[in-house]
């Protein structure tokens, strides 16, 4: 400790000094997040900018924290209108179960990690509000676009099985 240890320690710190700092000056520089990073839940949109959400409520049922809330009105022609789709980020544990439950890839774990809020009321906010929900057909991934009208019966049981496999 008194002899060789001191020399070794001094050598290590000098090597560190010559190596230069490894600090990332965070607010000025930001590192690229890895693809799998899970931060705030965010809705996704199709090419025309319409939300992919069909208001199927799967995410609301999947959420273990009960922080997602979807209020929807159904019109006479069965099309749905999302009044608001609220999300309480203050209680979200970023588990990603809602994203896995979504059959239409309508929500994702975004890479937005600067989540601090000044006002506690802002900890609950609407992901979507006052928009038309996508009809399930439009939002569904176009795996089998043609045979759908021809044989509707076998297509329905086949798809959930395929989604479960994709989820795993």
């Amino acid at each position: 400790m008194w002899g060789k240890g001191i020399i070794t320690g001094m050598r290590i710190t000098m090597r560190n000094m010559l190596r230069g700092p490894i600090t990332v000056k965070y607010p000025y520089e930001k590192l690229e997040l890895p693809e799998r990073a899970r931060w705030a839940v965010a809705p996704t949109y199709d090419e025309e900018g319409r939300p992919k959400c069909t208001a199927c409520m799967a995410c609301i049922r999947a959420c273990p924290d009960h922080i997602l809330d979807l209020e929807v009105t159904t019109r006479e022609d069965k099309s749905k209108h999302i009044e608001h789709y609220s999300y309480e980020i203050g209680a979200c544990m970023m588990c990603g179960l809602c994203v896995e439950a979504c059959p239409f890839d309508a929500i994702e774990m975004s890479h937005d990690y600067e989540l601090a809020r000044i006002d506690p009321a802002e900890l609950t906010y609407a992901l979507l509000a006052h928009v038309d929900a996508a009809p399930a057909k439009r939002a569904r991934p176009a795996a089998e676009p043609k045979p759908d009208p021809a044989e509707p019966a076998p297509a329905v049981p086949a798809e959930p099985a395929g989604e479960e496999a994709a989820d795993e």
Binding site: N16, R19, G20, P21, I22, T23, K25
Partner: peptide, 13 residues
């Protein structure tokens, strides 16, 4: 500064 750089930090910036 010296302590910072010895510890792979930047010191006052």
């Amino acid at each position: 500064k010296v302590l910072g750089h010895l510890h792979l930090r930047l010191g006052p910036m």
